[in-house]
Structures are given as C-alpha cells and as structure tokens.
Design a binder for these strands. Structure first.
Lengths: 337, 337
DNA sequence: CTGAAAGCGCTTACAG
DNA sequence: CTGAAAGCGCTTACAG
C-alpha cells in the first residue's frame, strides 16, 4: 500500500509552505500574490506526483462536498435512467459527483434518504413523492439548495424543471382532431401528483373546445399490469372510441396489450397516441405516435438552477431560480394515428 | 441557517466527554467500559437532537468514506439501470452510499473516473472497458477493493460477477435444435470484450455438436442502428436462415426491424431468440424468446464480494473473493421460436 | 470506568 | 510576497 501524498509532501518537495500549495490548487495565487516562479514550481510537483487533495479534508474545512444528491422515483425506469445520464454528464463536467437513490414513491424511503444525504451533499435534485413537502422545506431552510425534477409539489415554492404536460397533451389532441377523430378517449391513472391532472386538463380543454364530450378512464394507481390491461379491455369494449390517448408510458404499454386482446387493429379500428416515448413504441407494428419528453433540456435546466444556487448566497436567504421551468414535449408522428 | 450540532454539543448536553459519545455511536461501549447509565443518557440526547456525525470528519479520521463507486458502461441502458437499482438496495441497507458514472466504453473516460473517485470511495464495482487493466491493477495495489460486473478482463485476476454467457447460448441453441431448426444463424458484433466471444463460442459448440455448419454475421461494433439494420437485412436475404440467434439486445432490436423490412413472419419464416430480455421482446407480436440475465443474483454477489473485502485485510494483500462468479440466464420461451 | 489530547489533511485569516 | 498557526469534527490511543 503506497503512501498517499499530502499537501505537506508537495510543499516540502516544492520548497514552499502548505498554504502556498493550497493557493495554487485553488487558483488564489493572485490574491495571495505568489510569485510566478513558485507557482510553476508547485504545479510541476503536483503534475509529477499526480497529487489530488483529500476531499474529506477539504469538505471538513470548507463545508462543501462537491457532491449532488439525485433522488428519483426509480433509477431502473428508463425515463429516470435517461435523466440520470444527462445529469451525470453535466455534473462531472463541473467537477461534482452524484450519489443517487430511488424512493420507489415511498414517502418514508424518500425522507430517510434525505436525512442520510443531507449532510453529505451540497444540493439535491429530487423527484418528489407526495408528502415530502415538509422535508424539502426544511432542507431549504437549512440552506441546502433543492431543485425538483419531472414534477413539483403545488404549494411548495421550489425551483422545478419538467415537461409541459398540458401543452403536450393539447398538441397531441389537436393532431388527433385534425385527423378527424371524434370519439377520443383518455386513459390515465388516479394519482395525487400534479402532472397527471395537468395532462387530463389538457385533454378536457381540447375536447370541450372541439365541442365533444370527454370520455375518460381512470385506473387506480395501485393496479398491477394485469389489472390495468383488464380495465382498458373492458373500457374499449363498452366505449368503442375511435382514438385513444394514454396518459403515460406504463398505461400505454398495457393499453397496447388490451387492444391486441380486443382484436382491434391500429390505426384502422383505433388510433393510438401516448404521452412519453419508449423503445417499444418505436419498434411496435405499427409505430405508436408519442410525445417525447425533452429529457436533456429538463436535466440541463435542473442542474443549471442548482449550480446557480451554489454560486449565489446559498445561505437560506431567498433562493434565486425558484419557479417552474417547463419544456414542451416533441410530438413524434408514427403510423398509429 | 440553523447551527449544526457536533459531537461536542452532544457531549456537553449529556454531561460526558466527546470520546464517550463517539464510543456510543460506534458501538464500542463494551471495550471502553462505559456505564449503562451514561450510554442511555447519550442515546437520549442523540435521539432528541437528531444528531448525525459529520461524515467528512469521520472519513478524514478513519480513511473510510462508506461510499462505493459504481462505474458502468451507460447508466441509461436498461440493463445497467436495473443493475444500479439492485446494487442500490443492497448498498444502502449496509449503510453505504453509491456514486455512479458512465464510461460510454471510452477508455479515457473510465480512467479519469477512476482517478477522480479513487480517493473518495472505499471500493469499486466496475463494468470494465478494454484497456482498463492497468488502472484496475493499480487500484488493487493501493488496497482499494474492486469487483467487476457484467464482464471481466482475461489476464486480470479480479473478482467478477456476471452471467454465464456460454451456458446461456447453449441453452438457447438446444431449444432451437430440439424444435427442429437447422439453418440457425448467429448475429453478433465485433467486440474485444470477452463475453461476446463466449456467446459465439457457445453457438459454435452446439452447431458443431449437431453436425451443422455455423453461419455467423459479425457487425462492426461502431455501426449505428441504421447500419446494423442494413447488415442484417442483407444477411437475411442472402443466407435465408430458418432461425436466428441475436447475441445481444441492441442487435436483436435492429434485427426485428430488419426482419420486418424483409417481409418475413416470425416464427413462420424465421424463428428468433435473443440474449438479454427487454420490454420490447415481451410486448412484441409475437413475443420474442429471450435469455434473461439474472440481474439480481449478479448484483448481490458483486456487493457481497466487495463487502467481504471491506471486512478482510483490505491492505493490498491477497484479496479474498477473487475469481469469477457466473449465473445461468433464464430461457424465457415465447412465441417466436 | 472516563476524559484530555493528538492528529487526520486541508483552508483561511493573519503576522511579518 | 510568504509561512506559521488555528481549527473544521471526528476517533483513538493513553493517562488516570
């Protein structure tokens, strides 16, 4: 086990004091008015030894960890996984690292994760679960920046970056209406989170504008995949819509299975569109028209807001960058509509 | 911004010395022979204040970070995302955290990540890229435990946890042969990593055993999705196989598209099987027979080996738990074969 | 049985 | 322009 070089070793090797080395590392040679010759000397030694400061010591001294906590609903879900990838690239480029964890939408889990991580990260990017309001409020009160992603909690004035749910659904609806579909059904899940309500709202608004009576199926959030398929199958048989709008990935995949079971053809018997794209929709025969979330924009904006907070006061005063940033999804036209 | 309580505050509030508090926190009250009354006193105060030790200080003092570095090829890939999820559950349960990063199979990227993280984690779980041998060797020489996952580097005697590639392919092949398919083609990518060679080897072995001439298409690894589809389309038209074995997810998805373009039906014109399962294969019409990787077993074994290292010497001596752990994939029979 | 003291590796006023 | 010293919050011998 090789001995690890410390700032003292570097100082000794360069013939200067540790504080000089520190100034060089942190780019404070101007303020400290270190001579150019010494700066060069120190840089040489650092390069030769491959010296890297002990981050634990830096953190202890400065109170900064250069770590960001990424708390998502489920890292194995393709949407969050893609988000994590986008976050990663940005964050490492700025010299930060990421620790992640999944809440699986369990309130207790999320709370515990915040507790464990709160002292060990400089800030959070969080997919909030219902009931997390108070924890997030406290985090911010303690001067720990938080940016919400993918959704927000109404009544909690915290920066958030997400897709424009209502605009997306309205886009998709106008496409269906333009194509001449009339009996357009909307299939969604009961969910306390605001984004589902916004999507439903978008649907209702467009239907009402078009002068057609809305036709909505709401599936209990807790239902398993098999149950969801059952629900949709029954709904298709009784309502006989000519087009169907699935509010989310998860429901859409079950919906395709239900349509298959009913022996209906797409788009002949029924047109299909879904909020959220995925590989299955792309490869399905026929391709399924979908609203693709601008994951990169969402992730980049979230990081940007968080980093802006780091620059700013960071002292529990008014956080800059609070408020919602929404990005319109992209309508991917495929053969299903 | 509220003042953060330290061990001194707890000590003062409980009327004991900081070292006593430390002993209580670390469960060393027996060795230190602290009276039960004081232990209770301290525990009370800790509970009331919600005190959590400053991890930076602990790390600085003990040299342990209780963080694990997870370096994968691409966290947004569903396989690695699923792996990350399994790793996460295990790791948090043991009081560790995870920082992740993706290499995108770029050697430089992986090396840089190891450099950045090496001082800040207690150990690594790595999906190695070619050319990483030396970096991993050095990590271990410096007493930093490493467990490889999903693949290993021949010639590098490091613990690794992965699927049994050859056994999986042979399983799938025997299934096809039993069903009476003869002109079974194998489509793979050129790739220096060992797992692709093992899969190919499994195919060849079974074909030779069955007395049939192997028929292999190797696609350059660098090819984009469109190119891959082209390659496969041409291959299908010239070779006219009655069954096709895709060596991996990525190739299989392109393969389905190629089959569609050729106007072939599955399994009528051609049977399909693929190494690695995914949602598309499950929902495709017909369902695609696949070999599902035992992700949970792979992840759990990796963590177990890593944690065993933490218990052990950890001093750059012979690492316990070196060697390969392989888990057979599960053959999911669907309608495509 | 318990507490005072040293020290992990940094950064930051501060003295010269 | 540069270096000595204090201190971040812990843990660990060690003295009593």
């Amino acid at each position: 086990m090789k001995k690890i070089v410390s700032i003292k070793d570097i100082a000794r090797m360069a013939g200067v004091a540790p504080s000089t080395v520190s100034a060089v590392i942190n780019g404070k040679t101007r303020q400290a008015r270190i001579s150019l010759a010494k700066v060069e000397m120190v840089k040489q030694v650092i390069l030769q030894t491959g010296y890297l400061p002990n981050q634990a010591a830096v953190s202890l001294r400065t109170g900064k960890t250069r770590v960001i906590g990424l708390i998502v609903e489920d890292i194995s879900n393709s949407f969050f996984a893609a988000l994590a990838k986008q976050v990663e690239a940005k964050v490492y480029a700025q010299g930060y690292k990421i620790v992640y964890c999944s809440t699986d939408n369990r309130e207790e889990q999320g709370r515990e994760m915040i507790r464990i991580l709160s002292r060990q990260v400089d800030g959070f990017i969080i997919t909030p679960t219902a009931g997390m309001e108070e924890d997030i409020r406290q985090l911010i009160a303690h001067g720990k920046p938080v940016v919400l992603i993918d959704r927000y909690l109404p009544g909690l004035n915290v920066a958030a970056s997400l897709v424009d749910n209502e605009a997306g659904v309205r886009d998709g609806m106008r496409h269906l209406l333009d194509k001449g579909y009339k009996r357009i059904a909307f299939v969604t899940v009961t969910h306390e989170l605001v984004q589902m309500q916004l999507r439903e709202q978008g649907y209702i608004t467009e239907m009402v504008t078009a002068g057609i009576t809305p036709c909505i199926l709401k599936i209990p959030y807790v239902a398993g995949q098999a149950d969801v398929i059952e629900h949709i199958t029954g709904f298709l048989q009784s309502e006989k819509p000519d087009a169907i709008f699935f509010s989310t990935n998860y429901v859409g995949l079950a919906g395709l299975e239900a349509i298959r079971r009913c022996g209906m053809t797409i788009p002949g018997d029924i047109a299909v569109i879904c909020f959220d794209d995925n590989e299955t929709f792309r490869l399905f025969t026929p391709g399924i028209t979908a609203l693709e979330q601008p994951i990169q924009a969402i992730a980049h904006e979230a990081i940007q807001m968080l980093m802006d907070n780091f620059q700013g006061s960071g002292e529990g005063q008014d956080m800059p960058g609070t408020g919602l940033r929404m990005f319109a999804p992209k309508l991917l036209l495929r053969s299903s509509t």
